[in-house]
Each structure stands twice: as C-alpha cells, then as structure tokens.
C-alpha cells in the first residue's frame, strides 16, 4: 500500500508498459529491439502481478513469487534468444527480422 497512489494508476502504468512492448514487438525491424520489446511485455505482466497482490491480497505472497519467477524466465529466455541471434548473425550477417522468413536453410 503506497500512500497517494491508487491501484488504477499503477495498473495504468503496467498496461502502458505492456502495449509499448506489443507495439515494439510488431513494428521493430531489429531482432534485438524485438527482444527488448518482449522484455517490456514481461515486465508489464510482472508489475501487474505485484500490484494486484499488494493491493487486493496483502496477506499472501504468490503474486510476488510469480513476478520473481517471471524475471527468472525472462533472463533464461534472453540468454537463449541472444545466442540464437548471434548464431543467426554469423550465418547471414544480419539481425533484421525480414531476413528471417524461412524455418529451413
């Protein structure tokens, strides 16, 4: 419970964060930017968990733990994605999304 800040404001922030991520995911041309956008989406979701846990069910901790879980998954996913991108760069010398259209070859 933070003084002077209601749940609506916090949820607005998380929503904005989420949609910025979605927008970035759809429009960015660079795979790194796309990856960053995905992080934004995940963070938006994590903030949502924390806020709802804090404001609506202060006596339990599941929301908090879930957000830590999300951070862990995001870290793992980033590591994986970065390694894929590096390999891709070695192969086609580019990290542009539109270059990566086919699954094979």
């Amino acid at each position: 419970m933070i003084e002077g800040i209601s749940i609506y404001e916090l949820l607005t922030v998380s929503t904005i964060l989420f949609f910025i991520g979605v927008y970035g995911f759809i429009t960015r041309k660079n795979l790194i930017s796309v990856l960053i956008s995905v992080e934004l989406i995940l963070n938006g979701a994590a903030v949502n968990f924390v806020v709802i846990n804090k404001y609506l069910y202060p006596e339990v901790l599941q929301g908090m733990i879930f957000s830590i879980f999300i951070i862990a998954v995001a870290a793992a996913e980033t590591a994986l994605a970065i390694s894929i991108i590096i390999n891709l760069y070695r192969k086609i010398s580019s990290v542009e999304v539109k270059e990566v259209e086919t699954m094979k070859n």
Partner: peptide, 13 residues
C-alpha cells in the same frame, strides 16, 4: 502466410 513472425503477431494481436 508470409513467414514473418511480426505479421503473425500482428494478426494475433
């Protein structure tokens, strides 16, 4: 079916 992930994401969203 362009094969571009972003198009699919757009459609999905």
């Amino acid at each position: 079916q362009s094969g571009r992930v972003q198009d699919y994401a757009m459609a999905f969203v």
